[in-house]
Simulated assay, not measured.
Amino acid sequence: MVSGDNDGMAAKAPSKSSISPADKMLVKTWLHSKSANTRRAYERHAFAMLNFVGKPLTDVTLADLQAWSDSLNGASSSRRLALATVKSLIGYGTEMELLPRNVGQAIRLDRERDSLHERILSQQQVVALIENEPDARRKALLRVLYVMGLRISELCGLKWRDITRRKQGGVATVFGKGAKTRHVEVPAKLFKELVALRDDTGPDAPVVPGHDGGPLSRDAAHRVVKRAGKRVGLPEAFSAHWLRHAHVSHALDRGAPVHVVQKSAGHSSLATTTRYSHVQDGDGAGKYLD
C-alpha cells in the first residue's frame, strides 16, 4: 500500500466533475506507468487540491497552494505526501510546458522527525570525506556513491557496457533493488574522472575497479568507505548508504524536483524521496552535486 492511502485527510474521494478536461489529461499523463495504488493516491491528492482552489492549474497561484496547505489535517507524513504530490504534478506540468510557471517551487516540505537526519551528512562533510581521500581510484568510488546515489552493490556491479556516452557526461543503466532497471546521469566531471582511471577498454570492465583492476567486491568497497569516514572523524556507524542519503537530500536542497530525484534514486514511492528535504524545479539530480 502506498503511504498515505488511509490518512484521514478526506472523508470521501474528491469529485472530478469540476476538474477541467485539460487538468484531467495532465494528471493522467503525469501518472502514466505508475502502479494502480500510486495512481489512486496521487490522483486523490491532486484532485483534492484542485477542488479546494476551484480553478484550473494554469491559474493556480502560490497563495492558493498555501491556503490549501494550511487546510490539510491528519498525520504530518500524510500532509507531506499531499504537498509533495502536488509539487511534483506542478513541476511536471511546468517541465512539459503545459503550465506557465512552477508556483509550487516556493512550498517547502518539512522533514519528518525521525532518525534519518542522523544519517544525512552535511555538504561540508561530504566534501571533506572525498577531498581527504588521497587515492584517485578510491576517491572516484566515493564520488560515484554520492554524485550518482548508487547503492554499494550497484556500484560494484557497474560495467562500462552499462554506460552510454553523451555530449556532456553519460548515462548509466543501473540494475538495482527489486530487479528494477533505472537510468542515472553521470555528470561530465565525474565521467572524465572515471575515464581517466580506465585501463581495461573491454565492455565488461568495471567502472570502478578493485586495486588489481578487476571487479570490486562489496567488502572491499565497504572498507574503502569506512576508512575514509574514519579519516575525517565521521561516526563509527557511517556506511556507503549514508552517501546515498546525502545524494537525495542535497539534490533536493539544491533544487532538484522530487520526481527527478525519485527516478534517479530508484525509490518506488514518492513518500520515500520526500522524507529527505525540500523540493524545487530543475532537472537531472546528479547535476546538482557535481
Rank of each mutant, 00 (worst) to 15 (best):
A84E: 09
T85W: 00
V86W: 05
V86R: 06
K87P: 04
S88E: 11
S88F: 10
S88M: 14
G91R: 13
G91K: 11
Y92A: 14
Y92N: 13
E95F: 13
E95V: 01
E95G: 07
M96K: 15
M96Q: 14
L98D: 05
L98M: 13
L99D: 10
L99P: 04
R101N: 13
R101K: 15
R101Y: 11
N102I: 07
V103E: 12
Q105A: 15
Q105T: 15
A106W: 08
A106K: 12
R108L: 04
L109I: 08
L109C: 05
R111Y: 00
R113K: 14
R113L: 10
D114W: 08
D114G: 15
S115Y: 06
L116A: 06
L116V: 09
L116C: 09
L116Y: 10
L116E: 13
E118K: 15
E118H: 11
R119M: 09
I120P: 00
I120D: 00
L121Y: 04
L121K: 13
Q123R: 15
Q123S: 11
Q124T: 15
Q125F: 03
A128L: 14
L129N: 08
E131N: 13
N132Q: 15
N132H: 14
E133W: 03
E133R: 11
E133V: 11
P134V: 07
A136Q: 14
R138E: 14
R138F: 06
R138D: 14
R138M: 12
K139N: 08
K139P: 05
L141P: 08
L141Q: 12
L142P: 13
V144L: 11
Y146N: 12
Y146V: 14
V147Y: 00
V147T: 07
M148D: 10
M148S: 02
G149T: 04
L150I: 07
I152S: 00
I152C: 00
E154W: 00
E154V: 00
E154D: 04
L155M: 09
C156D: 04
C156Q: 07
G157P: 03
G157V: 01
L158D: 02
L158P: 00
L158Y: 00
L158C: 03
K159Y: 00
W160A: 02
W160F: 01
W160H: 02
R161N: 06
R161Y: 02
R165D: 08
R166C: 07
K167D: 09
G169W: 01
G170P: 01
G170K: 02
V171C: 03
T173D: 05
T173Q: 08
F175E: 02
F175L: 05
G176S: 05
K177S: 01
G178V: 02
A179R: 09
K180V: 00
K180I: 01
R182L: 01
R182P: 02
H183P: 05
H183C: 08
V184R: 11
V184C: 10
E185A: 10
E185C: 06
E185G: 06
P187K: 06
P187W: 05
K189P: 02
K189T: 08
L190I: 07
L190W: 00
